[in-house]
Every structure is written in C-alpha cells, then in structure tokens.
Design a protein around this nucleic acid. Sequence first.
RNA 1: GGGGCUGUGGUCUAGUCUGGUAUGAUUGCAGGUUUGGGACUUGCCGACCCCGGUUCAAAUCCGGGCAGCCCCA
Length: 484
Amino acid sequence: MAGRQEKDEKGVTAEKDEFSEWFTQIMLKADLADYTAVSGCIAFRPTSYAIWEKIRDEVDKRFKKEGIKNVYFPLFIPEKVLSKEAEHVEGFTPEVAWVTHAGESKLKERLAIRPTSETIMYDSFSKWIRSWRDLPMRLNQWNNVVRWEFKHPVPFLRTREFLWNEGHTVFASKEEAEAEMDFVIGTYDDVCRNFLALPSLIGRKSDKEKFAGAEYTVSMEFLMPHGKAIQGPDFHHDGQIFAKAYDITFLNEEGKKEYAYQNTFAITTRMLGVMFAIHSDKNGLVLPPRIAPTQAVIVPILFDDSRDEVLTLARDVEEKLSKFEVLLDLREEHKPGYKFNEWELKGVPLRIEVGPKDVERKEVVLVRRDTGKKEAVKVRSLAAKVERMLEEIQESLLEKAEKFLRAGVVEAKDLLSVEKVIRSKKIAFVPLCRGVECEDMLKYKSGGAKVLNIPFDGEKRAKGKTCVVCGKKADYLAYVGKSY
RNA sequence: GGGGCUGUGGUCUAGUCUGGUAUGAUUGCAGGUUUGGGACUUGCCGACCCCGGUUCAAAUCCGGGCAGCCCCA
C-alpha cells in the first residue's frame, strides 16, 4: 500500500476533498468491497451486495408490474454473431474479453464474453418474432457483463466486470417504442431519488456521445463530490438499426413484412459507488435508510450492577422495532465507544443507545448518522419516532444531494465562462449548435469537458441564444462537464 | 494515453541505501479485569507479490512480470 501512515487506523483518515483516497478508504474500511486476484474486478461484500439486491428488487418489481418479463441468455457470444452490427461492434471490440480454449484444445470459433447482450439476444429474437401479434415483446435480464477497460479501475465506479439489468424491448411502431422511455427513465429516477436519495440531470446524449448502435440515448448524469460528472442509468432507442442487422421482422396487420423498432436500457452496480461517494463523510459511510441493509443498531451500555435490566430493555427495544431492519449489538469484546465508531463507519442510519439511566427514565437515546444529533425518546413512543426519524434522514439526504447538484450547475454564455465553470469543478449549462466540430472544439477549449446530455426542454430554452463555439444560432442548451 | 510512487503476518509498519537469525503495533484465538465516544492485561497463531539472475548467502542488488495508489491528458 502507498505508505500513508494513518491508513492503519480503523476510521477514515482522508478528507472528502482528496476524493480517490477517501473513496478507497470508505470502500475498504466499511467492508463494502475488496480487491480480488483479478485486476479491475472487486468482490462485493455482504453490505454492498445487499444494497444491490434492494436496487434490483425495486426496479424488478416495477418492470414486472409493467409487463416486462425476465429471461436469461448465455454469457458467451460467438464471434460471428457479435460482429453483425458494424457500429455496435466498433464501439465494443477494444474491450471484449475472449474465450479461445477449452482445456488444452483451441476452439474453432472464439467466444466473446458478453460486453452487453444485444447481439446474442437479437439472434434469437429474429426467430421468435413472426407477426404483429408477437409484439410488443418486452424482455429483461439481470446479469453480469465484462468490458476489459484499460483506464485504471475504481471499485464500483469503473470495474471490468459489473452487474446490471439489460432491458431489450421490441415494438411494431416507432411511436410505441419511443413512448416506453418515460416509463423506463421514470422508474430509474424513482429508484435513484426515493431509495438512493440521488437526484440527476436527465436528458438526451449528443450524437457524438450516444451508445454505439443507438438512434439516440437518454441518460441520467450524476455530479460526484470532486466535481466530475458520472453517467448512471440509460435508455437507448435503437430504431430499426439492430432489426436490420439481425433480421428482426414481423408481418403487420396488412400482411406486409416490416422491421421492428427496439429499445434497450440499463442500471448498473456503478450506482452503489455514486451513492457511497455522494452521501458519505469524514466519519465513513452514510446510507439512506430505505436502502440500508441495517436501518438501526442497538448498543447496550452494560455495567455489572445494572446488566440484566439494561439487556431486558435492549431486547424489548429490538422487539418493538421488529418491523425495521434492526441489529442488537451484544458483542462483549468491545466497549460502547468502539461500537459507536464502527457503526458510524459502516453507515447505519440510526443508533439506539440503551443504558442504566435510560432504564430509570424509561427512554432510550437516538443518534442520527447523517447529522450526529442525539435525542432521548420515551420507550412507549419509540416505534413511531424511529419511523419518522428514518423518513427524515431519507428526505434530508435527498435534499442535501439536490442542493449540491443545483449549486453544481452553472449557466455559461461564452467559452471563457464555460472554462471558468469547469475549472471550478462544476457543470456548465451551455447553448450549443448540433455541429460535431463545435462539440470537439468545446472539449478542447474547456480543458476536457464534454456534453453530458441535453435536457428535454433544452431546445425550447435555447431560443434566441447563440452557440458558445461558433456564434451561430444555438440548437439547444446542454450540460457540459468533465466526466469520470 | 503519459508520468510518478508503492508491494513484508488478516491489517498497518521497521528493516532495503550498506546482502547474513525479520521490528513493532493492531486484528484474531484462549483467559482475567472492564463497559454512557475507539479499555487494560497475560499467553498463543500468523508475513518478505511472482518468475528468473548475481552470490557461500537475497526482503535487501539486477532483469522481467503482476498488482495497487497518485498526478496529468
């Protein structure tokens, strides 16, 4: 390890503004993940995996209710199948991992480990879809994908293998396909805001930045504490591009053959990293209560002369709070102070201290992880109070994140001010024209910032404004920032 | 993509320049005293990133690899 002497301490020793160091410490010390023998691939430890399961369950529930069905396709994609859609292949080839051998014998055709499953799925879709009665076909799979990136990997945020959902839906008309976007992005936004407490900038990608093989891409962009933007869930409308490459056709009501229209969409384990980074602080992890695997921890304060009474009360409290995810920390080998610090580091939203004084007064002490505020609460009103407090924490984390995002987006009318905004580690909101040359120039002039996306009302709001690069009429207002 | 730094018990670390029995802390395990913000104590377990070279002898020197971190694009 890099010889940082304080690193052996149990708590986080880095300030949040030394982002990389701080983030690594949170990740390791809060037992979220660990490095493995495979470069760029992490082990998700129980806490982080439990959070992923919650995200997955919430999204999955909403998808199913909407009629999207889960399927599972192979991990492997034969080279021939992978390389049918030119633009798509080109986007992914540099990062594809290949299986070339089985035991000692070389395979006749090498197999790609899926970087995404369009190609293998659509090969089947073309067989499954015959008539307009087969449509829409809305499928989804929860799986892992591998993209062998050469940029240096960062736990959760950029790993070579990650987990995600990949929705793949097929429609008879463009209108129907495009109408799905509101539902998909609405679902992701709902889960991000109301569970992860993360607001985002939602909009269309520019043509330059869209997904390889898509007609257009809608993305959710998050602002990280160190001022870099990072892309979260996305939705791609593929038009008939893949349908033509993979021959996904159907007979319409008039008996005529037509190519189908398709969408794809995803949310990945990167969101864990985004959430850890945005909410956490100097003392360690901070988790929104709705996503936290443990919502409250009860720490009994035991003295020899009052041991039994305190334990009885602690167990009573556990019982009263059985509708929440509660942990009663009965470990004898650590003092309360140690436990306080440990559970703060691990991000448990609420701590409940139960000691001899509390037994006398028939109360317990509640401590919020996000603010550190302590409050004594009567045992009889505890359950209601805990419920309210967890809600308050959830809301206040979202509010805080919203405030940070709002403060992090600044309008800029000319190149000079764009550069200034970018240098101050913020996102610039900039009038631009559609020209790719202007976008390239902008990146060059701003010191590496790119178009993140264009909000849905970005075109309307550009009226009367001029492109910051070429000075001609602006087509839209775009979010521009350095990205992770 | 470019540059820099670092790999020693589970974790952190001394030792590397100047080759010779590997330092200490912490965790863990067993015991005792403790417990309202990281307790104390006794005992025990446990390590030189990998491959090659130089040498009587390599954690240390040389070459190559792998891994992690930081900075810049």
